[in-house]
Amino acid sequence: MPTPTVPAATLASLEERARQLRRHVIRMIAAAGSGHPGGSLSAAEIVTALYFHVMRHDPARPHWADRDRFVLSKGHGVPIVYAALAEAGYFPTGWLETLRKLGSPLQGHPSRRDCPGIEASTGSLGQGLSIAAGMALAGKLDGKDYRVFVLLGDGEIQEGQIWEAAMFAGHHRLDNLIAILDYNRYQLDDAVEAIVSLEPVADKWRAFGWDVEEIDGHDLAQVVPALERARAGTGRPVMIIAHTVKGKGVSFMENNNEFHGRAPTPEETEKALAELAVEAPSSAAGAAGE
């Protein structure tokens, strides 16, 4: 396990930020009446660490040529990214209430033409790693030092295109490309292990020429250093296998695949928000942001 190098105050602030993003996720999916809470909640710490600590970006300049890029390949998890983009300042938090509604920039799955800060249009699973590799390739061509981060779903890597892209990135030693696997162990129909197993997943990525690290995807003391090491560069593309819990942070959603793609009822919403609030009694900063 990586040695924690992140100051405790930073970790505490990021933990509260992750809870705040989770609250946004619950509220916006409840308001939309549809969406994918499970896979949004499992990625909360990863997305928080990227947008609020690791990535070089400037919400005032979403097209800044030297920015780090983030591609959400598992497009259905986009509520957690919308929450991060809003809190980072890409657009007003008020937009979050419009998720999935007619005319909203916040489409049901990511659309780069509609929403500032969204780098790739995804939602048809399997495409994001290729797109991220193309961005990484462009960075090499232009001699730029930006990094490209891409978040993959576990069920998603059953897609053949993922392995085409993995082979390409390994061959070209795209060390500016960092993939994170949100390994929450469930896909829509059932447990990943019950449908088509990914194991031994770390060996597979190593065999394709990637540096692989495995972490607890909810422990920011592991998430942040792993992302920072990858960002610094290892000479190869990096795969961070983040072991996560689907629905993390809301007791009745955790490992409950019913919440892969269903909105909470009003009662469930209230209960979820109560659970997400009580963990942070001392943080005024997070509450003030809402």
Partner: peptide
């Protein structure tokens, strides 16, 4: 690997190529 080729092209285009 045609699918990857077109995905790569999307990424390249989004960076000005």
């Amino acid at each position: 690997a045609e699918a990857n080729m077109v995905g790569l092209a999307a990424g390249l285009a989004s960076c000005g190529k």
